[in-house]
């Protein structure tokens, strides 16, 4: 048993590595799982250190390839929390609730993006633009340069600091709470926030309309309209259910994606969807 345990310590240097490795978080942003590849890439230095065993490393990489998205400027905060949790897990894999790692990530996704987008895109960027545009309109090269500096100096500073802040907060919270039953309850709470946000994102991002008309003339409605009248958003939810069913049947996500494309094309050609 004890051979599985790992007493490796995470150092300041490791955190710095994560900061740099996670910079290109949106480099391979994708519509299926969003920032996932960048997140996993940022965690790699830690995962490689904590899990020398190939099987553990593979599982850990998969864990951090799940859907994730946040304002990139404060991504390091979430990474810091994940690092603290992975470190804890590596010490005692059998007793650690591994699911909680993603539960915390998902719970942080919504609230942090709200704060982060509000500050970085809504405030800092607008200030930087205000400075930059007025110079640019006169044709000065200082315009774009000022914009870049005013935005990015605070951006990089906060992003760098957030790495150790997240890590410390994560470590403190864990050591303070471990042993008491409160950790489990907290994870439940994190899970609730996460699930509700995923539900909200599903409602916002998925648009499926079945446009087959029912009825005649003025009173005609589409199937989607009728279904929405009964349960709003029933059609997107049915698709979520369908995809869950396909996962149960062990169909690969790649094939599901092709299936989505085919459904889209058939829907458009027949006019059944729009």
């Amino acid at each position: 048993m004890s051979s599985d345990r790992n007493e490796v310590q995470i150092t300041k240097k490791d955190l710095r590595k994560v900061f740099f490795q996670s910079l290109p978080a949106e480099w391979l942003w994708n519509s299926e799982r969003q920032m996932n590849v960048g997140y996993c890439k940022g965690m790699l230095p830690i995962l490689q250190k904590l899990y020398p065993n190939k099987k553990d490393l593979s599982e850990a990489m998969h864990r951090h390839l799940e859907l994730f998205n946040v304002t990139p400027a404060i991504l390091t905060f979430v990474l810091g929390m994940s690092i603290a949790m992975e470190e804890q897990r590596a010490k005692d894999p059998e007793h650690y609730d591994t699911k909680s790692i993603n539960a915390v990530k998902t719970a942080l996704m919504g609230p942090l993006s709200g704060v982060g987008d509000g500050f970085f895109l809504g405030t800092l960027r607008v200030i930087a633009l205000g400075v930059g545009i007025s110079l640019s309109l006169k044709g000065s090269i200082l315009g774009p340069i000022a914009f870049f500096l005013v935005y990015n100096i605070p951006h990089y500073y906060i992003r760098y600091k957030a790495t150790s802040f997240g890590y410390k907060l994560g470590t403190d919270a864990i050591s303070q709470l471990s042993g008491s039953g409160i950790m489990k309850t907290l994870m439940e709470g994190a899970g609730i926030v996460g699930l509700m946000v995923i539900g909200a994102m599903t409602a916002q991002m998925m648009t499926v309309n079945i446009t087959i008309p029912v009825g005649m003339g003025e009173a005609a409605q589409t199937v989607s309209e009728i279904l929405d009248g009964i349960i709003p958003g029933l059609v997107p939810l049915l698709f979520v259910g369908l995809i869950n069913f396909l996962f149960n049947k062990k169909i690969s996500p790649m094939i599901m994606m092709l299936l989505c494309l085919i459904i889209g094309l058939i829907g458009a050609f027949t006019g059944f969807m729009g």
């Binding site: 519509s31 299926e32 994102m201 599903t202 998925m206 698709f239 979520v240 996962f247 459904i263």
Partner: peptide, 9 residues
């Protein structure tokens, strides 16, 4: 429809 795959995962 495609985002559903990530959500379900």
């Amino acid at each position: 429809i495609i985002p559903a795959i990530g959500f379900v995962l």
